[in-house]
Design a protein around this nucleic acid. Structure first.
Length: 585
RNA sequence: GGAGUGGUAGUUCAGAUGGUUAGAAUACCGGGCUGUCAAUCCGGUGGUCGCGGGUUCGAGUCCCGUCCACUCCGCCA
């Protein structure tokens, strides 16, 4: 049916008879000659339809945008002066001697280049994906996955599939459930990740496993979060942190080099969780952004100003500042907008100081809060922040979680708005996470990573004695401010695993009921092992420089979890429910 | 669950302060045109202003509610 892709035609092929198939990208009807731009996966070719070929011309006159055509004709170099340098095939054209409409197209809901809204694009995703920009994104994704597979295959990793119908887990995100027809009242859960299965594969002696696995979490969506997403899941036996992170950053370097021709640093910088929170108020800092926080709790402990001194003395709180170079000319209106911005994130307010000439101390600055601060405190703040003439200082004071949230958001926003973000790639490892966090609402300990992460202590007794002080053997890979992967060395001893369950508030009976199969597996010879899981959608989104992961997923869901194309989720009929033994309430 | 932004021809958008017949571009339809590639020229069709209620002599515009989309917070072991 076809001899070439449209996009392959070049002057070197001139003189050949070619057969093309594709979609009508556009057409120009001059009355006496009709040009048709025919598009396929590889590009666009120009068909020339002359009235001398009466049959061809008659068909061409009826053709409309996005019709599917088959054409045959002689490929020739275009007449002098009519080449189109903007087209890869612009030096040549096909003089059609056969033209057939394989499929007509109705008027389109939107046209290429019109910049349709996202909801419409999703409803007619097959039209959206015809656009070269979208096709290029899918191709980038394919090449990334191919490069990942090649790297891991070469290094002895085995691709193993794990179940999509499995059991719900008590910890973690909300599960998607699927009723079990054969066991009325029971449910499968779709996997949040293949975590337990890949650990079981290590106990099976697989040694090195990977899988490009679909995962499901029923939580609210974000620009970089979908209810179903794709993980690159990796697990290795007889390894420590250095071996896993070393190999995985080599993987990232190879993929970026192969797919983008980009060079990532060797080795990646490393930062502890404590450092990341102190300097960037985030466990996934964007190191392209030069702004850094300055901790001021120590400097302001004795201040008369209670807004600062009270949190400065409270261990669960912090006082910190962000120095914005050259921003002292920011208007009152802009500062008010920033204040509203942090208030939306729970902050009480946002103190600021504009520095005209810091060398003159109090007299060289402007701020509503200066009158509450002693000269020594002002100079201490100036010294610690390194504030210079023309700079603006923004303060956060209060519960650490809120201050961190607000200052991290300010840092991101101002970095972007003031064009401070350096171009390029800034990967890093964040390590030494706390293993557990006390949840004040539920009054219980929660695993920061997951309950199978090995704590950095040798004995269960040490863990139970000081859970809040225990670090985990976890590591996150961060790229340009996004967590793109996270993993850990796992627990491979039953006693430690039981101790973690106990700490998390699972009784021995509950642990047996929910995880008995896994605890048993730990009793029959479990190798030390560890691994990592990457969010491939995020990875590709960053590589594609796209604004959301929806742009690199063929058929994504909207923020409410709906698919505008299929209109899923949809109602089911009463019979289906009856068979499954369930009823909608 | 919360905060914000948006919803007006098929599409992308404009419609200060409430005022008569809601506009533009593009698409679409008809016609002209033999070298275009955002073809071009002439003419034409096209609107429950997201939905429901309210205020008003009068609502695309103001108020209340609601739905949808997007961004963010919570949530995401």
């Amino acid at each position: 049916m076809r001899s070439h892709y449209c996009g392959e035609l070049r002057a070197g092929l001139a003189g050949q008879t070619v057969k093309l198939c594709g979609w009508v990208n556009g057409l120009r009807d001059h009355g006496g000659v009709i040009f048709i731009d025919l598009r396929d996966r590889e590009g666009i070719a120009q068909l020339v339809c002359n009235p001398e070929q009466a049959g061809v011309f008659a068909v061409a006159e009826t053709v409309r945008a996005e019709y599917v055509l088959r054409a045959k004709g002689m490929l020739r170099v275009r007449p002098q002066g009519t080449a189109n340098p903007q087209l890869a095939t612009g030096e040549v054209e096909v003089v059609a001697d056969e033209l057939e409409i394989l499929s007509a197209a109705s008027d389109l809901p939107f046209h290429h280049g019109e910049g349709a809204g996202e909801e419409l694009r999703l409803k007619y995703r097959y039209l959206d994906l015809r656009r070269p920009e979208m096709l290029a994104r899918l191709r980038l994704r394919h090449r990334t996955l191919a490069a990942v597979r090649a790297f891991l295959n070469e290094r002895g990793f085995m691709d193993v599939e794990t179940p999509m119908l499995t059991r719900a887990t008590p910890e973690g995100a909300r599960d998607f459930l699927s009723p079990a027809r054969n066991r009325p009242g029971r449910f499968y859960a779709l996997p949040q990740s293949p975590q337990l299965f890949k650990q079981l594969l290590m106990m099976s002696g697989l040694d090195r496993y990977y899988q490009i696995a679909r995962c499901f979490r029923d939580e609210d969506l974000r620009a970089d979060r979908q209810p179903e997403f794709t993980q690159l899941d990796v697990e290795m036996s007889f390894v420590d942190e250095e071996e896993v992170t070393g190999l995985m950053e080599a993987l990232a370097r190879e993929v970026f080099a192969k797919v983008l021709g980009a060079q990532l640093p060797d080795p990646f910088p490393r930062m502890t969780y404590a450092q990341a929170m102190l300097r960037y108020a985030s466990d996934a800092p964007d190191l392209r952004n030069p702004l850094e926080l300055v901790e001021l709790s120590e400097a302001l402990r004795e201040a008369q100003f209670k807004v600062f001194s009270a949190p400065a003395r409270d261990p669960g709180c912090r006082v910190a500042a962000l120095r914005i170079p050259g921003a002292a000319d920011m208007s009152r209106r802009e500062l008010d907008q920033l204040t509203e911005f942090v208030q939306a994130m729970g902050a009480r307010g946002m103190a600021w100081i504009k520095a005209a000439d810091p060398s003159r101390g109090r007299d060289g600055m402007r701020s509503p809060i200066l009158k509450f601060l002693a000269d020594g405190e002002i100079s201490s703040v100036a010294e610690r922040t390194g504030v210079a003439a023309g700079d603006l200082l923004l303060f956060g004071a209060g519960p650490a979680a809120i201050v961190n949230r607000a200052l991290a958001a300010l840092r991101d926003r101002l970095g972007r708005e003031r064009n401070l973000i350096a171009p390029g790639w800034a990967p890093l490892w964040v390590t030494d996470f706390p293993a557990f966090e006390f949840d004040e609402n539920e009054k219980r300990w929660k695993a920061l990573h997951h309950p199978f992460t090995a704590p950095g202590v040798a004995a269960p007794r040490e863990l139970l004695a000081r859970p809040g002080a225990t670090l985990s053997r976890a590591y996150d890979m961060v790229l340009n401010g996004h967590e793109i992967g996270g993993g850990s060395i796992r627990i491979h001893q039953r006693e430690m695993q039981s101790a973690v369950f106990e700490l998390l508030g699972l009784s021995a009976a509950e642990a047996e009921e929910k995880f008995g199969f896994f605890l048993r597996a730990l009793e029959f010879g479990a190798p030390p092992h560890g691994g990592i899981a990457f969010g491939l959608d995020r990875w590709v989104m960053l590589m594609a420089e796209a604004e959301s992961i929806r742009e690199v997923i063929a058929f994504p869901k909207t923020q409410s979890g709906a698919c505008p194309l299929t209109e899923a989720p949809a109602a089911v009929n009463a019979r289906q429910l009856r068979e499954l033994g369930i009823r909608a309430i």
